[in-house]
Amino acid sequence: MKIVALVKYVPDATGDREFAEDFTVDREGSDGLLSELDEYAVEQSLQIAEAGDDVEVVALTVGPDDAYDAIKRALQMGADSGVHVNDERIHGSDVLATSAVLAAAIRRLAPDLVVCGMASTDGSMGVMPAMLAERLGWAGLTQARELSLEGTTVRISRDDDTASLVVEADLPAVVSVTDQSGEARYPSMKGILAAKKKPVDELTLDDLDLDPASVGLGAARSRVTAATERPAKQAGTVVTDEDGSSAAVIADFLTAGKHL
């Protein structure tokens, strides 16, 4: 059995995140790392592998040279191998083109299960797992709080706004897991050393039989025309409370803002 865990290299959210001159996310000028939410996807993949016999976990990413770091982290955590789709012509792709590239790479790998994080920590759209399920024609089991596998049936629990659901599907399937699915492990020293010997395949659009005209900034159906940094918020009023003394100040604030 083969599991593909999707991993994305993102700018560190605790640092300054910027846009490049073409209004794409600046991935060169900022420190990057494996998207925290994808660590949960790697963790769940590894747990399935550890519970089963002969389960292989492949970490897959699309991105520039630096994106290798996302795969490296997954390998250090315990994934068996990596696939890095790295092709300059992909730069500036919108989410539709990116999903087409990922879907082509997944088809080539032919896994039984694809595990994703619930969203990236940069674009944060949370749409990729659903779009991949759509493109592959596989079941999409999204926003899983729990994930389990029994034979060729995958089962998740998820919380919607109005109900808690249990959802099942036959493999192959695409699953996304939330940060509630279980803490992700830190790489051990052994894992870090072992990762250096694990194979990572680099693929281009040609390997995936994709038309370069269908990806990149030129093919994007939506393009960003401006990016402006939000002005720092004007410092508000700060008062110190003594035994509820601030209540009147707060009531005035609520009245002035027409919140009452």
Binding site: T237, S246, V249, A251, L254
Partner: peptide, 28 residues
């Protein structure tokens, strides 16, 4: 979080919130 505050109150919510709740109820 104070960097985002239009009004920031340095105080214990267990004291401040009930006092505000009381004020809001009186105004309403």
């Amino acid at each position: 979080i104070f960097a985002l505050a239009d009004l920031g109150v340095v105080g214990d919510l267990h004291t401040v919130l009930p006092a505000v709740t009381e004020q809001v109820k009186q105004i309403n």
